[in-house]
Each structure stands twice: as structure tokens, then as C-alpha cells.
């Protein structure tokens, strides 16, 4: 399940396991620093092995898969766009992932500008002139594709690590 060789995705939501059963004392929450420790060490090794571009692709695809699964298994309001956004905002907040806000939503052309404040991946990082939330780009892609049935191009245009105070993502349907 977790270590088989594969050429196609074998991820399933059930792989997250039963947290109540597995962690009856420590519960299902964890420090953000530990999450970042895992992500950035993983990023470090991936870049060494395959280069920045490929490492980014890995994170984007993983984020997209996570977004699709999140839409299916966590979100419950999938009717209109405002309902979907409301549900997503609430879920991201409850799970301490970030504070999602909508700056622009053109439902005709399917162009969106979304911001995430206190982003799990990057808020508080040292300012280094880089936009690092590649996983979040994929995550948003997965969510929007699941909701609209259309493919998207999602790009982070502002990031804490590049000096902004919120992460801003632009998404365009293709």
C-alpha cells in the first residue's frame, strides 16, 4: 500500500488511517513547525536528486491530488461557487491550514484570485525573494477542477517568502 512500486496513483483517503484509534492520547493535531520540517527537508532532498523544476512538479502534483481528495472527503457544500468557497474557508480555518479569502471571482471566464493568509507552508518564513507554495498551487488546482470540471492553470503571484504578507494565487481555466 505505502511502499509498492507504481506508475499510476494508488493514493486513497483511507490511507490516512483512523487517528482516534491510533492516537488516543496525543490526538489529531500537531505543531506547524513539524509539518514544515518534513516538507522542507523533503524539498531539500528532492531538489538535490532531481533539480528545482522537477521537485516543484512533484510538489504541485501531490498538492493537486490532495486538493481533489480534500474536495471529495472533507467538503460537503458543492452547489454554487459561494457555497463551495464558504465551506472551503471554514474547513481550511478549522484545520489550521490558512485563512482563505476571495479577491476576484469571474464565474463566466472562471478566473479567480485567491489569497491565503497565515498560510501553513510559508507564513513567517524568512524573506528570500522566492515563492515557495507550490504544493498549495496544486492544492487549489485540485479543488477548482473538482468543483468546476475544468482544467486550471494556478500560479502563486505573491508569497510571504517573497516579501508579501499574504499568499496570492491566480487561477485561470484552460
Amino acid at each position: 500500500m505505502f511502499k509498492e512500486e507504481r506508475t499510476e496513483s494508488q493514493f486513497d483517503w483511507s490511507m490516512l488511517g483512523n487517528l482516534a484509534e491510533g492516537r488516543p492520547n496525543l490526538g489529531d493535531s500537531m505543531n506547524v513547525a513539524v509539518y514544515r520540517l518534513m516538507q522542507f527537508t523533503l524539498r531539500d532532498v528532492l531538489i538535490q536528486r532531481m533539480g528545482v523544476a522537477d521537485a516543484d512538479r512533484v510538489f504541485y502534483e501531490a498538492g493537486r491530488k490532495a486538493g481533489e481528495q480534500f474536495y471529495t472527503h472533507v467538503l460537503t457544500k458543492k452547489g454554487s461557487f459561494p457555497e463551495f468557497v464558504g465551506d472551503l474557508q471554514e474547513s481550511l480555518q478549522k484545520l489550521n491550514i490558512g485563512i482563505l479569502r476571495v479577491e476576484l471571482a469571474d464565474l463566466e471566464k472562471l478566473n479567480f484570485t485567491l489569497t491565503v493568509a497565515e498560510d501553513l507552508d510559508c507564513s513567517g518564513l524568512p524573506v528570500c525573494g522566492e515563492q515557495v507554495c507550490t504544493y498549495d498551487e496544486g492544492f487549489i488546482h485540485g479543488l477548482l477542477t473538482s468543483h468546476t470540471g475544468r482544467e486550471f492553470r494556478v500560479r502563486e503571484v505573491d508569497c510571504w517568502a517573497s516579501g508579501d504578507r499574504v499568499c496570492r494565487f491566480e487561477a485561470h481555466a484552460i
Binding site: E103, A117, G129
Partner: peptide
């Protein structure tokens, strides 16, 4: 630009646009 004061006002603009949408 990347000046800190500009980033804060970009944040303000983002929030105002979000409030407009709300």
C-alpha cells in the same frame, strides 16, 4: 516593488477586494 510598507498595503487591498466580494 518589495518594500515592506507596499506589502502591507497590498494585503489591505486584498482584504478590501475580499470584503467587496463578500
Amino acid at each position: 516593488g518589495k518594500m515592506r510598507v507596499l506589502q502591507s498595503f497590498k494585503s489591505l487591498q486584498a482584504n478590501l477586494r475580499h470584503l467587496t466580494w463578500k
